[in-house]
Design a binder for these strands. Sequence first.
DNA 1: TATTTTAATAAAAACGTTTTTATGATATTA
DNA 2: TAATATCATAAAAACGTTTTTATTAAAATA
Lengths: 345, 345
Amino acid sequence: MKKKTKHPSIKDVAKEAGVAISTVSNVINETRFVKEEISNKVLKAIKKLNYRPNIIARGLRTKSTKTVSIILPDIGSPFFAQVIKGMEEVARNRGYTLILGCTFYNIEEEERQMNVLLDKLIDGLIFFCGYDKYEHIKKINDQKIPVVVIDREIDDPNIPSVMINNTLAMETAVDYLCSFNHREIGYLTFSFENQTTVRNRYIGYCNGLKKNKISYNPKFVIIDDSVRLNEIEGTYNIVKKFLENGEKIPTAFITMADFFAYGLIKALKEKGYRIPRDVSIIGFDNIIFSGFVDPPLTTVKQPKKLMGSTAMNLLLDIVEGREVKEKNIILPTEIIERGSVGPPG
Amino acid sequence: MKKKTKHPSIKDVAKEAGVAISTVSNVINETRFVKEEISNKVLKAIKKLNYRPNIIARGLRTKSTKTVSIILPDIGSPFFAQVIKGMEEVARNRGYTLILGCTFYNIEEEERQMNVLLDKLIDGLIFFCGYDKYEHIKKINDQKIPVVVIDREIDDPNIPSVMINNTLAMETAVDYLCSFNHREIGYLTFSFENQTTVRNRYIGYCNGLKKNKISYNPKFVIIDDSVRLNEIEGTYNIVKKFLENGEKIPTAFITMADFFAYGLIKALKEKGYRIPRDVSIIGFDNIIFSGFVDPPLTTVKQPKKLMGSTAMNLLLDIVEGREVKEKNIILPTEIIERGSVGPPG
DNA sequence: TATTTTAATAAAAACGTTTTTATGATATTA
DNA sequence: TAATATCATAAAAACGTTTTTATTAAAATA
């Protein structure tokens, strides 16, 4: 076992400066007035020993480690990455560090991770996306441990949350396609048993159809969970098979996430379909790459960084006991028009 | 300030079970034999109170928090995300949690983040990619704080590291293009003053040219730092301007990272160039999207997950005092052939 | 049986902080 | 001048663990 050279402790500083431990603490935290002469001695000792207080030991006493953690299903997704970027910036500016816990879309893992992190005396917790189980979140929220849920629609308004209106956003996507006179609209999605977000988007799709007097065609709905693992290849294969089976294809597709669209586009183009001339596509998320596929993807933009910063600010406000006006925040979405949607050929 | 409902401590368990604190500790850690009868009482009390030891307090005593942290320049990059995924898996399996620190390509930030994390009693540290300054890394490595550097070529063999041979890999890319009879080969890169990785790839490019008896043409080297911020748009604009200036363009491009290729492809296609018929492109990294641009990108693959898992295993071996056979590990790269390279038209 | 060894548990110290309480000097008041 | 208030600092307690040392009871030995 490698042995670390011992870091100087507050005791060492006190000895070096010839004062009491508490005086050093008072100088560091400015909790009491300390005569300039003594204060200077302490400061000098701190500098000389290159002392920095041990946050952990401090946390043991103060119950705050200035650390918040984020539990999310997948660290490899550019969508999450952007949201986290928004969080990170806020956290850093407000003096907190971030711990990431990753569940890899394993439901049980979420609670386990939560416990592991809680053991480390974190000040607060952000839960990302989700599964429909949230008893554990309710529980710790009831225990007054600061929690914010992001990207998951929870029916308990006591749990602070930041989200978009998935149903409405997806309805807008249908409307948008209909404004181009599409009447046959396919839908690519995760399976939606366990995830409200996924389900609500699907509901939005259905609502949109109804609203535009289009009858629902189950053959146009393709379910694909490979994307969860960032395996675009999976979507590509599924769509390819779909096309090879000689299924009738709709004049337009909505994908529940941009990721689906990449595989979809590739498969369609390989089979000779031109986009948007033969098939229109609208995605969801507006991931950075969507502007660089061919054709560039029209998509429903989620305000990713804003979601992140909003959630982190909300959490830290709660952690620090500030007043929060609204603890269930809904952020707007927006359609980014690029080149993948046009009138049906 | 919201007040948390107090978590039960080991003291509460001891009282509940009617034994001494140390006995509880012995039961939990199996440090001493405890009679089954007493042990059962303790276990029951633990269960009843839903007690979990406070890792922080434990860490204060044992000097280990079972936490390692990763300092990286950008959390939003799919390349890093994949590497981190590899790390996360290993860390989790070996019972550690991860803290991420993000520097956003700010050199000063790296040392600051390092100090912040060190204050939290982490067991070890992985530094990602890099800048040429590494006195601070040397310093803490000398202090026997376990460190591993990844994706940065450091000339000090005392610092454990995991990397690829960037020079060689890039040379291979040149060879590959030459095998298609390309003689005019452009190069897209970050500016390379401060980053050995970037510079070494460039050197590989130059070596490759020399080896294949191609004279170096500075006009073919495009420097673009926008990609650092994941702004593919930036590359697109630079290349577009390049093309509009009527510059002669090479028959093939190498990009130092796949990200450049996306903007490059878009700009070229907009100006009517066909890929690979008019211009061939080979990237570097093999990011997931590279299989889904049009044409699919031929690229030099970095073994991202393997790099991550290797680095984490190396770090934890050091942390746990295991013997490490080789502390400067070089992993192989490989050319992934897709559709963006062909013979010059 | 008296003494020593061993086993099991309890008590206390330690980790590095902050915070509360105690101390002693100085300044203020009666 | 004696009593009191204030100020600056020191000492001690606390946070929740692990680890070291002490204690007690039982078992083994002489």
